[in-house]
Protein backbone atom coordinates (compact mmCIF):
# COMPACT_ATOMS: atom_id res chain seq x y z
CA UNK A 1 0.00 0.00 0.00
CA UNK A 2 2.37 2.69 1.20
CA UNK A 3 5.41 0.99 -0.22
CA UNK A 4 7.28 4.15 -1.05
CA UNK A 5 6.20 7.70 -1.53
CA UNK A 6 7.24 8.80 -4.96
CA UNK A 7 9.52 11.79 -4.92
CA UNK A 8 8.34 14.01 -7.74
CA UNK A 9 10.35 17.05 -6.82
CA UNK A 10 12.40 16.73 -10.00
CA UNK A 11 9.52 18.44 -11.75
CA UNK A 12 10.67 21.71 -10.20
CA UNK A 13 13.78 21.48 -12.33
CA UNK A 14 11.59 21.96 -15.39
CA UNK A 15 10.33 25.32 -14.11
CA UNK A 16 13.13 27.47 -15.59
CA UNK A 17 12.39 25.99 -19.01
CA UNK A 18 8.69 26.63 -18.58
CA UNK A 19 9.51 30.21 -17.67
CA UNK A 20 11.72 30.74 -20.70
CA UNK A 21 9.29 29.05 -23.07
CA UNK A 22 6.50 31.21 -21.66
CA UNK A 23 8.35 34.34 -22.77
CA UNK A 24 9.66 33.02 -26.07
CA UNK A 25 6.66 31.06 -27.23
CA UNK A 26 3.50 31.03 -25.19
CA UNK A 27 3.07 34.76 -24.52
CA UNK A 28 3.85 35.89 -28.12
CA UNK A 29 1.57 33.16 -29.39
CA UNK A 30 -1.24 34.33 -27.14
CA UNK A 31 -0.69 37.89 -28.35
CA UNK A 32 -1.17 36.65 -31.89
CA UNK A 33 -4.25 34.74 -30.79
CA UNK A 34 -5.52 38.01 -29.35
CA UNK A 35 -5.07 39.81 -32.68
CA UNK A 36 -6.65 36.98 -34.61
CA UNK A 37 -9.92 37.07 -32.69
CA UNK A 38 -10.48 40.84 -32.55
CA UNK A 39 -10.50 43.58 -35.10
CA UNK A 40 -8.34 46.19 -33.45
CA UNK A 41 -8.77 49.67 -34.91
CA UNK A 42 -7.04 51.66 -32.17
CA UNK A 43 -6.02 51.54 -28.57
CA UNK A 44 -9.60 51.83 -27.28
CA UNK A 45 -11.42 50.64 -30.32
CA UNK A 46 -11.68 46.88 -30.70
CA UNK A 47 -14.32 44.51 -31.95
CA UNK A 48 -14.55 40.82 -31.22
CA UNK A 49 -14.95 39.03 -34.54
CA UNK A 50 -14.67 35.37 -33.46
CA UNK A 51 -13.40 33.11 -36.23
CA UNK A 52 -14.08 35.57 -39.05
CA UNK A 53 -10.40 36.13 -39.78
CA UNK A 54 -9.78 32.37 -39.84
CA UNK A 55 -12.61 31.88 -42.32
CA UNK A 56 -11.26 34.68 -44.44
CA UNK A 57 -7.79 33.13 -44.52
CA UNK A 58 -9.16 29.66 -45.28
CA UNK A 59 -11.23 30.89 -48.21
CA UNK A 60 -8.70 33.35 -49.61
CA UNK A 61 -7.67 32.07 -53.07
CA UNK A 62 -4.24 33.67 -52.66
CA UNK A 63 -3.64 31.67 -49.50
CA UNK A 64 -4.96 28.49 -51.09
CA UNK A 65 -2.68 28.96 -54.09
CA UNK A 66 0.31 29.64 -51.86
CA UNK A 67 -0.53 26.59 -49.78
CA UNK A 68 -0.71 24.35 -52.85
CA UNK A 69 2.55 25.85 -54.13
CA UNK A 70 4.25 25.27 -50.80
CA UNK A 71 3.08 21.66 -50.58
CA UNK A 72 4.32 21.01 -54.11
CA UNK A 73 7.64 22.68 -53.35
CA UNK A 74 8.15 20.69 -50.13
CA UNK A 75 7.30 17.40 -51.84
CA UNK A 76 9.67 18.12 -54.72
CA UNK A 77 12.40 19.12 -52.29
CA UNK A 78 11.97 15.91 -50.26
CA UNK A 79 11.86 13.76 -53.40
CA UNK A 80 15.10 15.26 -54.65
CA UNK A 81 17.08 15.88 -51.47
CA UNK A 82 16.48 12.68 -49.50
CA UNK A 83 17.63 10.26 -52.24
CA UNK A 84 20.42 12.63 -53.27
CA UNK A 85 21.54 12.97 -49.65
CA UNK A 86 21.68 9.20 -49.22
CA UNK A 87 23.52 8.83 -52.51
CA UNK A 88 26.15 11.40 -51.54
CA UNK A 89 26.57 10.00 -48.03
CA UNK A 90 27.30 6.57 -49.49
CA UNK A 91 29.95 8.04 -51.75
CA UNK A 92 31.80 9.82 -48.96
CA UNK A 93 35.08 8.32 -47.70
CA UNK A 94 34.68 6.30 -44.54
CA UNK A 95 37.82 7.23 -42.63
CA UNK A 96 41.10 9.11 -42.67
CA UNK A 97 41.81 12.68 -43.72
CA UNK A 98 39.64 12.26 -46.79
CA UNK A 99 36.60 11.71 -44.58
CA UNK A 100 37.34 14.87 -42.61
CA UNK A 101 37.90 16.86 -45.78
CA UNK A 102 34.66 15.57 -47.31
CA UNK A 103 32.72 16.47 -44.16
CA UNK A 104 34.02 20.03 -44.21
CA UNK A 105 33.29 20.50 -47.90
CA UNK A 106 29.81 19.06 -47.55
CA UNK A 107 29.04 21.21 -44.51
CA UNK A 108 30.00 24.53 -46.12
CA UNK A 109 26.56 25.39 -47.57
CA UNK A 110 25.00 24.74 -44.17
CA UNK A 111 26.94 27.47 -42.41
CA UNK A 112 26.05 30.22 -44.88
CA UNK A 113 23.30 32.54 -43.61
CA UNK A 114 19.99 32.36 -45.46
CA UNK A 115 20.04 35.84 -46.93
CA UNK A 116 23.66 35.45 -48.00
CA UNK A 117 22.62 32.32 -49.87
CA UNK A 118 19.82 34.32 -51.48
CA UNK A 119 22.09 37.19 -52.44
CA UNK A 120 24.77 34.86 -53.77
CA UNK A 121 22.25 33.09 -55.97
CA UNK A 122 20.66 36.36 -57.05
CA UNK A 123 24.02 37.34 -58.49
CA UNK A 124 24.92 33.84 -59.64
CA UNK A 125 21.75 33.58 -61.73
CA UNK A 126 21.94 37.01 -63.37
CA UNK A 127 21.89 36.91 -67.13
CA UNK A 128 24.53 39.58 -67.61
CA UNK A 129 27.19 38.94 -65.02
CA UNK A 130 26.15 35.77 -63.14
CA UNK A 131 28.28 32.70 -63.74
CA UNK A 132 25.29 30.35 -63.67
CA UNK A 133 22.91 32.63 -65.55
CA UNK A 134 25.33 33.29 -68.40
CA UNK A 135 26.30 29.63 -68.62
CA UNK A 136 22.75 28.30 -68.75
CA UNK A 137 21.83 30.94 -71.31
CA UNK A 138 24.41 29.48 -73.68
CA UNK A 139 22.28 26.33 -73.93
CA UNK A 140 18.76 27.50 -73.35
CA UNK A 141 16.85 30.70 -72.69
CA UNK A 142 17.03 31.40 -69.01
CA UNK A 143 15.47 34.33 -67.26
CA UNK A 144 14.11 33.94 -63.80
CA UNK A 145 12.30 37.24 -63.70
CA UNK A 146 10.24 36.31 -66.74
CA UNK A 147 9.89 32.55 -66.83
CA UNK A 148 7.84 30.86 -64.12
CA UNK A 149 9.62 27.58 -64.76
CA UNK A 150 13.07 29.15 -64.51
CA UNK A 151 12.22 30.85 -61.23
CA UNK A 152 10.77 27.67 -59.73
CA UNK A 153 13.70 25.54 -60.92
CA UNK A 154 16.18 28.06 -59.52
CA UNK A 155 14.53 27.92 -56.09
CA UNK A 156 14.62 24.12 -56.19
CA UNK A 157 18.26 23.95 -57.23
CA UNK A 158 19.27 26.59 -54.71
CA UNK A 159 17.52 24.84 -51.85
CA UNK A 160 18.96 21.52 -52.94
CA UNK A 161 22.45 23.03 -52.89
CA UNK A 162 21.83 24.66 -49.53
CA UNK A 163 20.14 21.81 -47.65
CA UNK A 164 21.02 18.44 -49.18
CA UNK A 165 24.22 18.52 -47.06
CA UNK A 166 22.05 18.32 -43.96
CA UNK A 167 20.53 15.07 -45.19
CA UNK A 168 23.96 13.88 -46.27
CA UNK A 169 25.51 14.53 -42.87
CA UNK A 170 22.66 12.85 -41.00
CA UNK A 171 22.75 9.80 -43.25
CA UNK A 172 26.54 9.69 -43.13
CA UNK A 173 26.42 9.60 -39.34
CA UNK A 174 23.77 6.89 -39.53
CA UNK A 175 25.83 4.81 -41.95
CA UNK A 176 28.94 5.06 -39.79
CA UNK A 177 27.05 3.68 -36.82
CA UNK A 178 26.19 0.43 -38.61
CA UNK A 179 28.58 -2.24 -37.26
CA UNK A 180 30.91 -3.77 -39.83
CA UNK A 181 29.55 -7.23 -38.95
CA UNK A 182 26.32 -6.49 -40.83
CA UNK A 183 28.24 -5.94 -44.04
CA UNK A 184 30.35 -9.02 -43.40
CA UNK A 185 27.27 -11.13 -42.75
CA UNK A 186 25.68 -9.80 -45.93
CA UNK A 187 28.83 -10.72 -47.85
CA UNK A 188 28.69 -14.24 -46.45
CA UNK A 189 25.00 -14.44 -47.37
CA UNK A 190 25.87 -13.46 -50.90
CA UNK A 191 23.75 -10.32 -50.84
CA UNK A 192 23.96 -7.95 -53.82
CA UNK A 193 24.86 -4.29 -53.31
CA UNK A 194 21.21 -3.41 -53.77
CA UNK A 195 20.13 -5.97 -51.17
CA UNK A 196 22.70 -4.63 -48.73
CA UNK A 197 21.23 -1.17 -49.17
CA UNK A 198 17.64 -2.37 -48.96
CA UNK A 199 17.94 -4.84 -46.06
CA UNK A 200 20.90 -3.61 -44.05
CA UNK A 201 21.36 0.12 -44.53
CA UNK A 202 17.84 1.38 -45.08
CA UNK A 203 16.34 -0.28 -41.97
CA UNK A 204 19.23 0.99 -39.85
CA UNK A 205 18.86 4.49 -41.30
CA UNK A 206 15.15 4.62 -40.63
CA UNK A 207 15.31 6.88 -37.61
CA UNK A 208 17.91 9.17 -39.07
CA UNK A 209 15.90 9.47 -42.26
CA UNK A 210 12.80 10.28 -40.28
CA UNK A 211 14.60 13.18 -38.62
CA UNK A 212 15.93 14.31 -42.00
CA UNK A 213 12.45 14.14 -43.54
CA UNK A 214 10.91 16.08 -40.68
CA UNK A 215 13.56 18.79 -40.67
CA UNK A 216 13.52 19.16 -44.41
CA UNK A 217 9.73 19.26 -44.52
CA UNK A 218 9.47 21.90 -41.81
CA UNK A 219 12.25 24.07 -43.16
CA UNK A 220 11.04 23.93 -46.74
CA UNK A 221 7.45 24.55 -45.72
CA UNK A 222 8.54 27.69 -43.89
CA UNK A 223 10.96 28.88 -46.58
CA UNK A 224 11.09 32.63 -46.77
CA UNK A 225 14.42 34.37 -47.10
CA UNK A 226 15.94 32.76 -50.18
CA UNK A 227 12.96 33.05 -52.56
CA UNK A 228 12.30 36.52 -51.18
CA UNK A 229 15.81 37.62 -52.10
CA UNK A 230 16.15 35.73 -55.37
CA UNK A 231 12.72 36.07 -56.97
CA UNK A 232 10.73 38.17 -54.53
CA UNK A 233 7.96 35.61 -54.97
CA UNK A 234 7.69 36.27 -58.69
CA UNK A 235 7.29 36.31 -61.56
CA UNK A 236 3.70 37.09 -60.60
CA UNK A 237 3.17 34.99 -57.54
CA UNK A 238 4.69 31.84 -59.02
CA UNK A 239 7.29 31.41 -56.26
CA UNK A 240 5.35 33.07 -53.49
CA UNK A 241 5.58 30.79 -50.45
CA UNK A 242 3.20 30.92 -47.53
CA UNK A 243 5.79 32.82 -45.50
CA UNK A 244 6.22 35.48 -48.16
CA UNK A 245 2.47 35.87 -48.48
CA UNK A 246 2.10 36.10 -44.70
CA UNK A 247 4.69 38.86 -44.51
CA UNK A 248 2.95 40.73 -47.31
CA UNK A 249 -0.35 40.58 -45.45
CA UNK A 250 1.15 41.49 -42.09
CA UNK A 251 3.63 44.18 -43.06
CA UNK A 252 2.64 45.19 -46.59
CA UNK A 253 -1.09 45.46 -46.01
CA UNK A 254 -0.82 45.77 -42.22
CA UNK A 255 -3.81 43.44 -41.95
CA UNK A 256 -2.83 42.23 -38.53
CA UNK A 257 -6.01 40.32 -37.65
CA UNK A 258 -5.86 38.23 -40.81
CA UNK A 259 -2.10 37.79 -40.44
CA UNK A 260 -2.59 36.58 -36.86
CA UNK A 261 -5.16 34.01 -37.90
CA UNK A 262 -2.90 32.99 -40.80
CA UNK A 263 0.09 32.57 -38.43
CA UNK A 264 -1.85 30.36 -36.07
CA UNK A 265 -3.17 28.13 -38.85
CA UNK A 266 0.26 27.94 -40.45
CA UNK A 267 1.84 26.98 -37.14
CA UNK A 268 -0.83 24.41 -36.30
CA UNK A 269 -0.62 22.80 -39.72
CA UNK A 270 3.12 22.22 -39.41
CA UNK A 271 2.75 21.05 -35.83
CA UNK A 272 -0.01 18.56 -36.60
CA UNK A 273 1.53 17.32 -39.81
CA UNK A 274 4.90 16.71 -38.11
CA UNK A 275 3.21 14.99 -35.21
CA UNK A 276 1.21 12.66 -37.46
CA UNK A 277 4.24 11.98 -39.56
CA UNK A 278 6.32 11.08 -36.53
CA UNK A 279 3.56 8.95 -35.01
CA UNK A 280 2.92 6.96 -38.17
CA UNK A 281 6.60 6.31 -38.79
CA UNK A 282 7.23 5.10 -35.25
CA UNK A 283 4.05 3.04 -35.05
CA UNK A 284 5.88 -0.29 -34.94
CA UNK A 285 7.97 0.88 -32.00
CA UNK A 286 4.97 1.76 -29.86
CA UNK A 287 5.00 -1.20 -27.41
CA UNK A 288 8.55 -0.33 -26.43
CA UNK A 289 7.74 3.35 -26.74
CA UNK A 290 10.71 4.38 -24.62
CA UNK A 291 12.87 4.29 -27.68
CA UNK A 292 11.36 7.55 -28.87
CA UNK A 293 13.89 9.75 -27.18
CA UNK A 294 12.33 12.91 -25.77
CA UNK A 295 15.26 14.87 -27.10
CA UNK A 296 14.24 14.33 -30.69
CA UNK A 297 10.70 15.30 -29.95
CA UNK A 298 11.74 18.51 -28.27
CA UNK A 299 14.04 19.25 -31.13
CA UNK A 300 11.31 18.94 -33.71
CA UNK A 301 9.00 21.12 -31.63
CA UNK A 302 11.62 23.79 -31.26
CA UNK A 303 12.16 23.66 -34.95
CA UNK A 304 8.50 24.35 -35.51
CA UNK A 305 8.21 27.07 -32.94
CA UNK A 306 11.29 29.12 -33.49
CA UNK A 307 10.76 30.31 -37.04
CA UNK A 308 7.09 30.90 -36.36
CA UNK A 309 8.11 33.07 -33.45
CA UNK A 310 10.30 35.17 -35.64
CA UNK A 311 7.36 35.58 -37.95
CA UNK A 312 5.21 36.53 -35.03
CA UNK A 313 7.72 39.16 -34.10
CA UNK A 314 7.54 40.49 -37.61
CA UNK A 315 3.79 40.56 -37.26
CA UNK A 316 3.98 42.32 -33.93
CA UNK A 317 6.39 44.98 -35.10
Amino acid sequence: MDAKKKNNKAWFLVLPVVFVVAFTAIIPLMAVANYSLQDIQGADNRLFVGLDFFKRVATDPNVQDAFARNVTLSMQILLIQIPLGIFLARLMPKSGWKASAALVVVAIPLIIPWNVVGTTWRIFTRNDIGLGGVLVNKFTDYNLSESTFDAWATILVMDTWHWTPLVTLLVYAGLRSIPQAYYQAAAIDGASALAVFRFVELPKLKRVLMIALLLRFMDSFMMYTEPFVVTGGGPGSSTQTLSILLTTIAIGQFDIGVAGAFSLMYFLFIQIFSFLFFTVLTLDERPGATRVTPKEKVKSREKVEKPVNSKLKKVLK
Binding site: A181, Q184, A185, F199, V200
Partner: peptide, 21 residues
Protein backbone atom coordinates in the same frame (compact mmCIF):
# COMPACT_ATOMS: atom_id res chain seq x y z
CA UNK B 1 38.16 -16.72 -53.55
CA UNK B 2 35.57 -14.27 -52.26
CA UNK B 3 33.53 -14.97 -49.14
CA UNK B 4 30.39 -15.59 -51.13
CA UNK B 5 31.90 -18.65 -52.83
CA UNK B 6 33.55 -20.22 -49.79
CA UNK B 7 30.46 -21.69 -48.18
CA UNK B 8 31.41 -20.65 -44.72
CA UNK B 9 28.99 -19.75 -41.97
CA UNK B 10 30.07 -17.07 -39.55
CA UNK B 11 28.45 -16.01 -36.31
CA UNK B 12 29.47 -12.65 -34.90
CA UNK B 13 29.83 -11.18 -31.41
CA UNK B 14 26.26 -9.96 -31.47
CA UNK B 15 23.29 -11.34 -33.40
CA UNK B 16 23.48 -9.98 -36.93
CA UNK B 17 20.00 -10.11 -38.36
CA UNK B 18 17.95 -8.36 -40.99
CA UNK B 19 15.46 -6.69 -38.67
CA UNK B 20 12.85 -5.92 -41.28
CA UNK B 21 12.52 -9.61 -42.16
Amino acid sequence: VITDDRNIAQVFQFPVLYDTM
